[in-house]
Computed example of a mutant assay.
Amino acid sequence: MCGRYAITLPPDAMAQLFAARPANALPAVPNFNVCPTTQVHVIRSGESGRNLVSMRWGFLPHWYKEETSGPLLINARAETLAEKPAFRAACRERRCLIPATGFYEWTKDTAGNRLPWYIFREDSAPIAFAGIWQSWGKDDPQETCAIVTTAANTAMSAIHHRMPLILEPDDWALWLGEEGKGAARLMEPGAEGVLDWYRVDPKVNSNRAEGEELIEPFEA
């Protein structure tokens, strides 16, 4: 699962990294507490090449009459992505990348308190989540997205049984549909030794928390 993350990379750096043309209106960075239903940075590919755009994090199937007509779909399971009615068309036709600096996950202590962890690439490179997107609404359509998740690898399973699907640069073009078919082979647990993590301050348990201190190591 991925329910909160951080992004510190400036839009021009994101555009350069992903070889994408940036849109004029993009979410502000840095953001150390990116939450569901907010606007997030997304890279998608089209006839004119790659574009860096803003989308609502929370996928809205076309049959939702209102944003709250059904469950909040911030994640999509890789194992059933091609089968679920909400996601199967997007899985075939509308895959995207969602950049991040790191993401949060939670464990619980013996008293049931939620203990947050900050998870990041061991090599300090930006993370590229695999995502899918959907344009929703007729009168004033908005573009929405979800992060694809997979079973946790051995190391991550100590924190949570799910993890976001993280793609390496060599796989970006295939996921975006630029290299034809075959993206299904990418939907596997991530390689071991790519991610690292540490405890962070419980203040990040609040979706209103802000500031760089959210991703700093915390000693209980």
Rank of each mutant, 00 (worst) to 15 (best):
M1T: 15
P11C: 01
L17H: 13
F18S: 03
A20P: 04
A23C: 07
N24C: 11
A25M: 10
A25E: 14
L26M: 02
N33C: 09
V34S: 03
C35G: 12
P36W: 11
T37F: 13
Q39T: 11
V40D: 00
H41F: 09
E47K: 13
S48Q: 15
G49R: 14
R50I: 10
N51S: 15
M55R: 11
G58H: 08
P61S: 08
H62V: 15
W63R: 12
Y64D: 04
E66H: 15
E67D: 10
P71F: 11
I74C: 10
I74A: 10
A76H: 06
R77N: 08
R77F: 08
E79W: 04
T80H: 05
T80Y: 05
K84F: 02
P85H: 10
P85F: 09
F87Y: 13
R88V: 10
A89H: 14
A90Q: 03
R92N: 08
E93M: 12
R95Y: 03
I98T: 01
F103W: 13
K108I: 12
D109K: 13
D109G: 11
T110K: 15
G112H: 07
N113A: 15
L115A: 05
E122Q: 15
D123Q: 08
P126S: 11
A128K: 07
G131R: 02
I132A: 02
I132T: 04
W133L: 06
G137K: 06
K138M: 11
D139C: 05
T144V: 08
A146I: 10
V148H: 03
T150I: 07
A151F: 05
A152I: 02
A155G: 10
M156G: 04
S157Q: 14
S157P: 00
S157W: 05
I159M: 07
H160P: 03
M163P: 00
P164R: 13
L165N: 01
E168P: 02
E168S: 14
P169K: 04
P169E: 01
D170S: 14
D170T: 14
D170H: 14
D171N: 13
A173K: 08
L176Y: 03
L176H: 01
E179V: 10
G180V: 07
R185Q: 12
M187W: 03
P189V: 09
G190S: 09
G193L: 05
V194G: 06
V194P: 01
Y198M: 03
R199V: 04
D201R: 07
K203Y: 03
N205I: 04
N207I: 13
L214E: 00
I215E: 01
I215H: 01
E216V: 07
P217K: 00
E219D: 13
